[in-house]
């Protein structure tokens, strides 16, 4: 059973990484959005395999269901075309970007490869125990503050996107 979970983990890890690379390499923003959707769904599977069903469901509902739909709406509303390559400037920028990315990967990769995580036994991340932590006195005020944030973002979005009279 453990082997099966490991195989599933690596399949979804490869899928999410592959679609992330496709998203960045793609010039058409619509295809990028769909590639990001694949990344989000496979990350949700990975969250499930790491024993966090609540976060896995939230990932699908909030990211795939709300945020990506918003992105697709805006993409179709604004009628965006393909990004045309710009020869000279683009090549320099590409080299610098990939060089910096490789540097970051090497530095942080060396740190992560050095640690040996000791996984705790008896991990319980069910929705019930999540709610016990979320609504404990430690976090309940932060939780209430996020509702103010959401209202603020909602009003802000309506005001910003409104057509000026």
């Amino acid at each position: 059973m453990e082997l099966f979970e490991a195989i599933l983990f690596y399949v979804f890890a490869g899928l999410s990484l592959l679609s992330a690379v496709v998203m960045v390499a793609q010039r058409n923003p619509l295809y990028s959005a769909f590639a990001l959707l694949v990344t989000i769904c496979s990350l949700s599977a990975i969250f499930g395999l790491l024993g966090s069903p609540f976060i896995a469901a939230l990932q699908i509902v909030v990211y795939a269901g709300a945020i990506m739909v918003l992105f697709l709406f805006v993409l179709m509303l604004l009628r965006v075309g393909r990004e045309e390559p710009e020869p000279g400037r683009q090549r320099v920028l590409k080299t610098v970007a990939i060089g910096l990315g490789a540097l970051l990967l090497a530095q942080l990769g060396a740190v992560i490869a050095g640690i040996r995580p000791q996984v705790a036994r008896g991990f319980d991340a069910s929705t019930r125990s999540m709610a016990r932590v979320l609504f404990s006195p430690q976090y309940v005020y932060v939780f209430e503050a996020t509702s103010i944030l959401i209202v603020g973002a909602l009003v802000g979005a309506v005001v910003l996107a409104r057509k000026e009279p």
Partner: peptide, 12 residues
């Protein structure tokens, strides 16, 4: 939560 709020405001 913050990502959802940020996406709404950013796209606006």
């Amino acid at each position: 939560t913050v990502a959802a709020a940020e996406a709404a405001v950013g796209l606006a």
